[in-house]
Amino acid sequence: MSAWRQAGLNYINYSNIAAKILRRSLKPELRTEALRRDDSHVRITPWTDGRPAHLKSKAA
């Protein structure tokens, strides 16, 4: 078993960290373009019984 999996990461976390480091170590003229691909705005809300989970816990 690899060390990163033992540390509780899955492959996606592991490769994203590697990608982040790679982007940062690029030459400056390439880095600006690459860093633009380095952000994410998605927000994820878990749902239970037809409503957002955090709303339900507040109501209970």
Partner: peptide, 24 residues
């Protein structure tokens, strides 16, 4: 609604990135 276990939003304002997909 009872079938939904997760909702991802803030999609479509900017082009999707691999990081978005990774989060999902």
């Amino acid at each position: 609604g009872k079938h939904i276990i997760s909702v991802a939003n803030e999609i479509g304002r900017l082009p999707p990135t691999f990081l978005d997909a990774a989060k999902i």
